[in-house]
Lab assay of single mutants.
Amino acid sequence: QAKEDFKKMMEEAKFNPRATFSEFAAKHAKDSRFKAIEKMKDREALFNEF
């Protein structure tokens, strides 16, 4: 479920497709859906799949 929420957050964010993961992470670090994925490498993997 956390992965689905994370993907939904990325869809809602409508970020620049050229944005890096660190830019995305800095902007969304306080979002509970971002925090729900415990490991940063897992967050980055989901970001890269998107």
Rank of each mutant, 00 (worst) to 15 (best):
Glu38Cys: 06
Asp42Gln: 06
Ser22Pro: 12
Lys14Val: 10
Lys7Ser: 06
Thr20Arg: 05
Asp5Glu: 08
Lys14Thr: 13
Ala36Arg: 10
Ala13Gly: 14
Lys7Phe: 15
Ile37Gln: 01
Glu4Pro: 00
Ala19Tyr: 11
Ser22Lys: 12
Ser22Thr: 13
Glu4Phe: 07
Ala29Glu: 15
Ala25Tyr: 05
Asn48Gln: 07
Met10Ser: 04
Ser32Gln: 11
Lys41Tyr: 10
Glu23Gly: 03
Arg18Asn: 15
Ala45Cys: 11
Lys41His: 06
Phe15Cys: 10
Lys39Arg: 12
Lys41Pro: 09
Lys3Tyr: 12
Glu44Ser: 01
Ala2Ser: 08
Asn16Ile: 11
Lys14Tyr: 09
Ile37Met: 07
Ala2Pro: 07
Glu12Asp: 07
Arg43Ser: 01
Asn16Tyr: 15
Lys8Ile: 06
Ile37Thr: 03
Ile37Leu: 06
Ala19Cys: 12
Pro17His: 10
Ala13Glu: 14
Ala2Met: 09
Lys41Ser: 13
Phe15Asp: 10
Asn48Thr: 09
Met9His: 02
Lys27His: 10
Lys14Phe: 07
Lys30Leu: 10
Met9Gln: 04
Met10Tyr: 08
Ala26Trp: 05
Lys30Met: 12
Glu12Thr: 09
Lys30Pro: 06
Lys7Met: 13
Asp5Ala: 08
Phe15Gly: 14
Met40Tyr: 06
Asp42Cys: 04
Phe21Val: 03
Phe34Gly: 02
Ile37Ser: 02
Asn16Met: 09
Phe6Met: 02
Phe24Thr: 01
Gln1Asn: 12
Glu44Trp: 01
Phe50Tyr: 13
Phe15Glu: 13
Leu46Val: 06
Ala13Lys: 13
Ala13Pro: 06
Glu4Gln: 07
Ala45Arg: 13
Leu46Gln: 04
Asp31Phe: 00
Ala26Phe: 06
Phe15Ala: 13
Asp31Trp: 00
His28Trp: 00
Leu46Ala: 08
Lys39Cys: 13
Lys7Cys: 08
Met40Thr: 10
Ala36Val: 02
Arg43Lys: 07
Glu44Asn: 03
Asn48Lys: 11
Lys30Cys: 14
Arg18Thr: 14
Ala19Lys: 06
Glu49Thr: 06
Ala26Lys: 11
Met40Asn: 06
Phe21Asp: 04
Phe15Tyr: 14
Glu12Trp: 02
Ser22Ile: 07
Ser32Asn: 12
Glu23Cys: 02
Met10His: 05
Lys39Ser: 15
Ser22Gly: 14
Met40His: 11
Phe15Val: 13
Glu49Leu: 07
Ala45Met: 14
Phe50Gly: 07
Asn16Gln: 15
Asn48Ala: 10
Ala45Thr: 14
Asn16Trp: 02
Met10Ala: 07
Lys30Phe: 08
Met40Arg: 10
Lys35Trp: 14
Ala36Ser: 08
Pro17Ala: 13
Lys41Met: 09
Phe34Ala: 02
Leu46His: 03
Ala25Glu: 07
Asp5Lys: 03
Lys8His: 08
Lys8Ser: 08
Glu4Thr: 08
Phe47Val: 04
Met9Val: 01
Lys27Tyr: 10
Phe34His: 01
Phe6Asp: 00
Ala29Asp: 09
Glu12Lys: 02
Glu12Ser: 06
Gln1Val: 07
Lys39Ile: 06
Phe47Gly: 04
Phe6Ala: 00
Arg18Ala: 15
Ala36Trp: 00
Lys41Cys: 09
Asn48Asp: 15
Lys14Leu: 09
Arg18Glu: 15
Ala13Asn: 11
Lys27Thr: 12
Ala26Val: 11
Lys27Pro: 03
Ser22Cys: 10
Ser32Lys: 14
Lys14Arg: 11
Met40Gly: 08
Pro17Lys: 13
Asp42Ser: 06
Leu46Trp: 05
Glu12Asn: 05
Ser22Val: 13
Ala26Gly: 07
Ala2Ile: 12
Glu49Arg: 05
Thr20Ala: 07
Asn48Phe: 04
Ala36Thr: 05
Phe21Gly: 03
Phe24Cys: 00
Lys8Gln: 09
Met10Gln: 04
Ser32Tyr: 09
Arg43Thr: 05
Ala2Leu: 09
His28Ser: 03
Ala19Pro: 07
Phe6Arg: 01
Phe50Cys: 06
Asn48His: 13
Phe15Trp: 11
Arg43His: 00
Ala36Lys: 09
